[in-house]
């Protein structure tokens, strides 16, 4: 892990003052769609992969 962090330090030889960061490769802005309710998973389907469920919710160890 130390070697990897030492390796990425090589970016510091580049002068990036004033360079706009790229977080998204293509020039697209927010993608909006109409706020229409679409079919979604049933409660049963959504719970099917739960490691521990009680039929209507996921069960986890006591929080408080």
């Amino acid at each position: 892990m130390g070697r990897i962090l030492a390796y990425v330090e090589k970016l510091n030889v580049l002068d990036t003052a004033g360079v706009t960061p790229t977080t998204h490769a293509l020039d697209v802005t927010n993608a909006f769609r109409d706020d229409v309710v679409q079919p979604s998973l049933s409660q049963q389907e959504a719970l099917a992969n739960g490691p521990r469920v009680n039929g209507e919710a996921f069960v986890v160890p006591k929080v408080i």
Partner: peptide, 30 residues
């Protein structure tokens, strides 16, 4: 390993040195 590196690169105080820097270099590559 990658989760730890990524968490470190985004952590408070290191964000500019790692993630922002890499994103600027990304612009140079583009």
């Amino acid at each position: 390993r990658r989760i730890i590196i990524g968490t470190y690169a985004l952590s408070s105080g290191y964000y500019d040195a790692y993630y922002k820097k890499a994103s600027q270099v990304r612009t140079l590559i583009v």
